[in-house]
């Protein structure tokens, strides 16, 4: 069922929700937030899209393969970033001890590893929400 008011409002509101999610992810080290809440907001925006339009439209926007790849890639990227600290001569997942530039506290590009890790976590959480929703709703029909 296509509802005019619902689809128009969702079309209007969706970019703002997504921008807010990206903002929360990349400002994770400066303000309350981080990878988990920002990823949840982006995932919720895609769920809202699929609920308002149609399940098919939603899975056309982001396919199953893409979201599965993003999810595995987010988890793998996080684990692989930890080895960067080992290569630079320190412990796994270390930040200052490995010599990453920390920048000026309070700037957007600062805090070395934390910034990168929160981006990977955001990607992972967002794709987890999307994958889980689509698979739970579709059930057995899709292979």
């Amino acid at each position: 069922m296509e509802d005019l008011i619902l689809t128009m409002i969702v079309r209007l509101i969706l970019p703002f929700i997504q921008i807010y999610g990206y903002y929360i992810i990349i400002h994770g080290h400066l303000s309350p937030g981080g990878g988990f809440p920002g990823g949840a907001i982006i995932g919720a925006s895609m769920i809202l899209f699929a609920l308002a339009f149609n399940l098919k439209e939603g899975s056309n926007k982001i396919s199953h393969d893409t979201s599965t790849l993003l999810e595995s890639g987010g988890a793998f990227g996080f684990a692989a970033l930890g080895f960067l600290g080992v290569f630079m001569g320190s412990n796994y997942l270390s930040n200052r001890a490995a010599g990453f530039p920390l920048g000026i506290p309070g700037n957007l590009i600062s805090s070395g590893m934390i910034f990168l890790i929160s981006i990977f976590i955001g990607v992972k959480v967002a794709s987890t929400f999307i994958t889980l929703f689509f698979n739970l709703v579709e059930g057995k029909t899709h292979d």
Binding site: G28, L30, S31, G34, R96, L102, G103, P105, M113, I114
Partner: peptide, 12 residues
């Protein structure tokens, strides 16, 4: 850690 959000610096 260079991060002014202490919760972020603790968890990451």
């Amino acid at each position: 850690t260079g991060s002014i959000n202490v919760v972020a610096s603790v968890i990451m």
